[in-house]
Design a protein around this nucleic acid. Structure first.
Lengths: 210, 210
DNA sequence: CTAACGTTTGTCCAATCGGTCAAAATTTGC
DNA sequence: GCAAATTTTGACCGATTGGACAAACGTTAG
């Protein structure tokens, strides 16, 4: 049992670790790291605390594992931003994908937001490394589009930031959005309206001058 | 001493309560409510824990007081959005003011973000009440501008959400923004670039269709 | 000066925290 | 079916948590 944490051998270990990560996502995404307790996660996973700590060495171990998995899926939409496609179509697809992620994986978005809000103590290296490299690359693509006159000239970094902000807002600030809009319009309607608005804003906002 | 918390009488109580709120803002905005300890706040305020609890009945009492004050100043820019001014000028001013608040009061922004992320357990009534009323009113103003053909027709609620998201992003996700942009450009430069980008995005994006 | 009031502190408390450990229960390989 | 390996649990640990409290200390009005 010396390596239960590093490479799950049995079927049970595989399943239970997944169960724990799912429960931890639920708890961490609401309360943050310091605000969450191992007992809460264990209860959400339907097991005792010592049993949970048999599968993960520590609370931090769970969080680190969760964050590593998260970043990959989280950056996938940006990775797909393609040089060869039509710029406006590419950007619209990117915005739509990011908005769908905010709708379908709000807990992941909130977990990430919590981590960043607290100064990114556990993912700073990934931000300065992997993330920066990816953004720099895509900024190059966008600059190419601007030079070719396909979209308006503007700051590509802040363009990406604004897309992140506007889309993730619907996951991170969901309760505020719901409070302001009222209960009339359901979740589907909210995201439809958001998609329509953002599409209009960015397509008009980035239309090349001339 | 029965009413130390409700209405400060002495000069010392006035000052010490301010000192504590300032320290609590520092601590809460980084660690969230559950992640912060009374000891941390007391130390940041330069006093002992029992002394702090002489001025505020409980940890929650501090947080509630902080949130009440926060919402007023936080909504001030939206309150200033004026019906009679030129629409584009008004919107540009609003965006600029919100961005300045993200720059000058990042701790307040993060405190608010933390609260919303955790489901707004302590400010939900204010969101559904005060905030919703204000937004509904300003949505009316914006709709008027659209009917008059002054700005493009679009969803006013999501327009406001997007302005909130894009501006507060620079406070809440500051470490991520810094990590991606690198140390080359200082804080002033970042906000200058952001202001320029957002102005372009919204002025073009909301230009009335002709 | 001094009595009354406001302020500060040291000490203490029950509850909860993350985590350990040995023993019990269960599953698995043969 | 049985022994070995894996999984689960109850009891427990020291550290930290939010908060209580009385005693000590300062301040101020008469």
């Amino acid at each position: 049992m010396e390596s239960a944490a590093r490479r799950p051998r049995t079927r049970i270990q595989q399943e239970k670790r997944e169960l724990i990560l799912e429960a931890a996502l639920e708890v961490f995404s609401v309360n943050g790291f310091r605000g969450s307790t191992v007992d809460q996660i264990a209860e959400a996973a339907g097991m005792s605390k010592p049993n949970l700590l048999y599968y993960f060495r520590s609370k931090e171990d769970i969080h680190v594992t969760l964050m590593q998995r998260l970043l990959d899926t989280w950056l996938a939409p940006l990775r797909e931003l393609d040089d060869v496609g039509d710029p406006m179509t590419e950007l619209r697809s990117y915005i739509r994908r990011k908005l769908e992620m905010a709708r379908d994986f709000p807990r992941e978005s909130r977990l990430f937001a919590n981590e960043i809000l607290q100064g990114a103590p556990r993912v700073m290296p990934m931000l300065e490394g992997e993330l920066k490299v990816l953004v720099d690359e895509k900024v190059g693509v966008i600059k190419g589009w601007m030079r070719a006159g396909k979209i308006a000239r503007t700051d590509p970094y802040h363009l990406i930031f604004s897309i992140w902000a506007t889309t993730q807002h619907y996951a991170d600030f969901d309760v505020q959005v719901r409070a302001v809009l009222g209960p009339d319009r359901g979740a589907d309607g909210r995201f439809e309206d958001a998609a329509r608005f953002l599409e209009q804003l960015y397509l008009n906002g980035l239309k090349p001058a001339r």
